[in-house]
Amino acid sequence: MSTPEPTQRDEPAETATGAPAAEEEAPRAASRLDLLPSPVFVLILGLTGIAGWLSWTRGEEAWFDGGTVYAPFVLILGAWIVSITLHEYVHSVLAYRFGDRALRGSGYLRLNPFGFRELFAGLLMPVAFLVLGGFGMTGPALHLDRSAVGSRAGRSLIALAGPVLNLVLALALVLVVNALIPEGSATNNWLIVGLMYVCFLNVTAALINLLPVPGTDGFDAIAPYLPEKAAGLARSAGIFGVIAVFAVLWLPGVHTAFLDLMYTLLGLVGLNETYIGFGQLLFQFWVG
């Protein structure tokens, strides 16, 4: 009687890399939710809107009997976080349109700042710059999959989309403020001066970001035309470039000259320096 042959166990097929196919990571299935605004963004908008209403009505004055108020702080901080989120969103959505799928489903394309892959650089640094410096400045430029965007012009457009978005937001806020204040009249309304300050933050963020310094969108716009190795080294030091720009603008003499320039530019579109300063004072309530 013959002994039965041992049954041969099926081995997993190998891939081109030599690894078993079963061990390869399955590609993530695309979902319509990948490109929809996240509930977190809706919540931020809601809290900012409530703070705006309390600032408009000065409702806190009755609650705290003339003491420190917090609604303008929440309004300005919320509006600034929304501005940062939209800044990163336009970078990401334009990159997506050009063929970069690396950030699909991430916080960048879902408008969730707390879901940013680079949370410290993308959200915490801009908030810290605002709290410490009193002006708007974003963190280091977002690192996209540049190899997926074939044309150099496309990569430059992706980089410039963020500062353009900040300028568009600033223009929209100018129109809102001018509609709320009749020509020639004065105001001390917390909502209006808060919006003026947010406009100021977006203008400073846009202009600073256009500087051709590693870490800024301005540098990313010219990087495709630089030697690839040099551009890569500069990008790797981007966070230090952004911190260096902030440090220079924080110097007393430079800070004063920079603010004077910003106030002059905003004065050309009807925004008063005194109102912007009042908005900053409402935000930095701990200074007073």
Score class of each variant (00 low, 15 high):
residue 161 A to N: 14
residue 3 T to K: 14
residue 196 M to S: 07
residue 62 A to V: 02
residue 136 G to S: 03
residue 221 A to W: 02
residue 159 A to K: 09
residue 49 G to N: 07
residue 186 A to W: 00
residue 260 D to I: 02
residue 130 L to P: 03
residue 156 S to L: 12
residue 39 P to L: 12
residue 141 A to S: 13
residue 172 A to S: 08
residue 230 A to V: 15
residue 178 N to I: 02
residue 122 G to F: 04
residue 78 G to A: 01
residue 35 L to V: 15
residue 93 V to H: 11
residue 241 G to R: 06
residue 19 A to I: 06
residue 90 V to Q: 09
residue 40 V to K: 06
residue 210 L to A: 07
residue 213 V to L: 10
residue 249 L to E: 01
residue 255 H to R: 13
residue 218 G to L: 07
residue 124 L to V: 15
residue 218 G to Q: 07
residue 147 S to H: 09
residue 35 L to N: 13
residue 275 Y to N: 15
residue 36 L to Y: 10
residue 63 W to L: 15
residue 101 R to L: 13
residue 14 E to G: 13
residue 195 L to E: 00
residue 244 A to M: 03
residue 210 L to Q: 06
residue 167 L to A: 09
residue 95 A to L: 10
residue 123 L to T: 14
residue 276 I to S: 03
residue 59 G to H: 04
residue 153 A to D: 03
residue 249 L to F: 08
residue 246 F to E: 06
residue 181 I to K: 11
residue 47 L to V: 13
residue 179 A to Y: 05
residue 84 I to C: 01
residue 50 I to H: 03
residue 157 L to T: 12
residue 93 V to I: 15
residue 198 V to H: 01
residue 37 P to Q: 11
residue 214 P to W: 00
residue 16 A to L: 14
residue 249 L to P: 02
residue 226 L to P: 08
residue 148 A to K: 13
residue 72 P to N: 03
residue 45 L to H: 02
residue 149 V to A: 08
residue 35 L to R: 15
residue 156 S to R: 11
residue 2 S to T: 09
residue 27 P to C: 12
residue 47 L to M: 12
residue 163 P to E: 07
residue 127 V to Y: 07
residue 32 R to T: 14
residue 222 I to F: 07
residue 89 Y to E: 05
residue 77 L to H: 06
residue 177 V to M: 01
residue 14 E to L: 15
residue 228 E to H: 09
residue 194 G to M: 03
residue 181 I to F: 01
residue 20 P to R: 11
residue 26 A to K: 15
residue 279 G to H: 00
residue 196 M to R: 08
residue 101 R to I: 09
residue 4 P to S: 08
residue 72 P to I: 03
residue 279 G to I: 00
residue 185 S to N: 10
residue 217 D to V: 08
residue 131 V to M: 13
residue 270 G to C: 04
residue 90 V to F: 14
residue 236 S to G: 06
residue 284 Q to H: 15
residue 36 L to G: 06
residue 171 L to V: 15
residue 153 A to T: 15
residue 279 G to E: 00
residue 96 Y to I: 12
residue 31 S to P: 05
residue 4 P to V: 09
residue 277 G to R: 13
residue 191 L to T: 00
residue 92 S to D: 04
residue 22 A to T: 14
residue 108 Y to A: 11
residue 229 K to R: 15
residue 31 S to V: 10
residue 118 E to G: 02
residue 220 D to F: 07
residue 116 F to W: 06
residue 263 Y to L: 14
residue 235 R to I: 01
residue 283 F to V: 03
residue 199 C to R: 05
residue 20 P to S: 11
residue 256 T to M: 07
residue 31 S to K: 13
residue 283 F to C: 04
residue 57 T to N: 11
residue 259 L to A: 13
residue 119 L to W: 11
residue 212 P to Y: 06
residue 221 A to Y: 01
residue 115 G to F: 07
residue 132 L to Y: 09
residue 259 L to W: 02
residue 256 T to D: 10
residue 252 P to H: 09
residue 68 T to N: 13
residue 91 H to M: 12
residue 265 L to S: 02
